[in-house]
Amino acid sequence: MIEFKNVKKIIDNIVVLKDISFSIDENSIVSFIGEENSGKTVLTKVFASPNDIDGGSIRFNPDISNFKISVMFDEFEKNLNMTVYEYFCFYLDCYGIYDSKDKIINDIFDKYKLSILKNANIDTLNVSVKKLINLLRLLIIKPNVLVLDNPLKLVNNNTKNLIKEILLENKYNMIIILTSNNMSEFGEISTHIGILENGEIAKFGTINSILDELDLLNRMEMRINGEITFAINILKKIKKVQNVVFDSDKIYFSISGNDSDKEDILRTLIENGVSVYSYREDIEILGQIYKSIKTFKDNKIINEEEF
């Protein structure tokens, strides 16, 4: 278990992280989500160097000496002048693994069908492959804590899926901590979500607990042909429907009920002449969480200013 208690980090006299508190249990995948400059990268750097903080405490249970923390930073190394094979050999040496390097490297390359890349110059590879190689390089040492800063940034879809698969494969062996500014990227694989806002944790918990708290559970997204206000008026009359909002041609609303209630609502809409052509659960749910927190905070600021 890792516990952050009021952790503070100052860089160049600017407080970048303020009172960060959360705890992470074994076998968790935690995603920290936030906009640019919200403190995500600095948080990953705190994991890389837990003793280098300017306030609060970080507790490792059992002792920190039992933790092997591997961090993948946002930007990949440049001007390495190495082949992929040499890169792996160098880092295996750095980790103190001197024996059977060939076997370890060949096994991991064969497993992910990357043998073709072994003799490629690492500087010439694209971002997607570089990120994948970086991730595999970290997994070779079997860390207890794997911290990845923006692992899917600028990565193509195939590699994104492969990275997610690799993370899910390893979820029972380690704590995985991810950061991203794309709200929906890690929704399906994360056990916990942390929302970072200006160096503070706005929300932290399991996805369901946050959704529940923000009344976003059973959030639906619907698209219709025709008059949008007509459909909204019908929805507002249904007792089990709350928080109806629309964004261009999409209508979002929450349902307090189960799957049969969702079907009943769709039936009611069609019977009333609403031409529905898309009706599904809101997959951008993390985006909604983020929007809700932001709207709540912005409204609070406006209200305080008015006061």
Partner: peptide, 8 residues
């Protein structure tokens, strides 16, 4: 070149 962080 972002090498130092990774090596450390």
């Amino acid at each position: 070149n972002k090498t130092i962080e990774n090596i450390l």
